[in-house]
Simulated scan of single mutants.
Amino acid sequence: MTNSTTNEPEPSDSLKTFGLVHKAFRKRAGLTQEEFAPLVRYQPSTVASIEQGRRLPPRVYVERAEEVLDAFGVLRAAAKYATRQPGLASWFRKWADLEEQAISLYTFENRLVPGLLQTEEYSRTLFNERVPVLTDSQIEAQLAARAERQRLLAERPNTVFNFIVEEHVIRRGTGGTQVTRELIDHILTVTELRNVELQLMPMARSVHAGLDGPIRLLETPENEWFGYCEGQRNGQFIADPETISVLHMRYAKLRSQALTPDDSRSLMERTRGAL
């Protein structure tokens, strides 16, 4: 998500604490994770991740769990102190929380393949080349967290995911030919999901609306829109309606300038065949 080494953190003490409290109330209610999950309308894997302290509990999840488990307000109170990791900027914690609740997620990238679409080997290549250098344990933690986050695509079938990616990002060959083949195969598979759409911005288009950099937009269940933009080692969480309006206009223009999803698939298949 960001270029900081803390962007995909290991479990924090506050998340672990929330998970333990949650688990205690669930067991008090005599429910297994599999029995509890449909009651809050989430997958059992999400419940497990939250109880293990590996996932920040979405606000709507906390409210549903509070009601189902009759937790006396304890879960709601504990959630206020649950953060991903000390030192992680507040704007990122807020975005990560909202991302897990979003009903629409729009992403434009001109630097690398968005994290939600990466393969493990593509991600590993990026982390191996990180400056300052990451330790092996840091890399493994980053990979595990990224894989956990990618579950959003499968676990939220009613969420609309739209990605616009520069063609040159796919053609760059990050990690080598085999990694690129696997990456394209993975993207082609993921975009078969009805709620996941990818458009390539062709290299033949010399000018487009995204030249100022990456754009991320999301819509909450309450139909509020937020944005997020990245720099080298910082990020900006955006709630200002005027700025959101500008980003929407730019993203809409990008969608009209990029290839259609079908044409994008055809281009990736041709690229894959030429490797």
Rank of each mutant, 00 (worst) to 15 (best):
T2H: 01
N3C: 05
S4T: 12
P9T: 07
P11V: 04
K16Q: 12
G19S: 08
G19T: 06
H22P: 01
K23T: 11
A24Y: 06
G30N: 12
T32K: 13
F36Y: 15
P38I: 04
P38M: 09
L39S: 02
V40Q: 04
V40A: 03
R41Q: 14
Q43S: 11
P44I: 08
P44S: 08
S45R: 10
T46Q: 12
R54A: 09
R55M: 14
L56P: 03
P57Q: 10
A65T: 01
E67Y: 10
V68H: 02
V68S: 02
V68L: 06
G73D: 07
V74H: 05
A77I: 08
A78D: 10
K80N: 12
Y81H: 14
P86R: 12
P86C: 13
F92H: 11
A96T: 13
E99I: 04
E99C: 09
E99Y: 07
E100T: 15
E100F: 05
A102I: 04
A102S: 13
I103A: 01
S104V: 14
Y106C: 07
N110Q: 02
N110I: 04
P114Y: 00
T119K: 05
E121V: 09
L126T: 02
R130P: 01
V131A: 13
P132F: 05
V133G: 00
L134R: 08
T135W: 00
S137K: 14
Q138R: 11
A141D: 05
Q142C: 14
L143Q: 07
R146P: 00
R149Q: 04
R151P: 00
A154P: 00
P157K: 01
N158A: 07
F163Y: 13
E167C: 08
E167P: 04
V169F: 09
G175K: 05
T180N: 02
R181T: 05
I184T: 03
T189F: 05
L193T: 01
E197C: 13
P202K: 09
M203A: 13
S206W: 12
H208E: 06
G210M: 13
D212F: 09
L218H: 09
T220L: 11
T220I: 07
P221H: 06
P221F: 09
P221I: 06
P221S: 10
E222L: 11
E224S: 11
W225E: 11
G227N: 05
Y228S: 04
E230D: 12
G231C: 07
Q236H: 10
P241C: 10
I244Q: 02
R250C: 03
K253S: 15
P261L: 03
P261D: 06
D263M: 02
R265I: 01
S266W: 02
E269M: 12
E269T: 13
R270S: 11
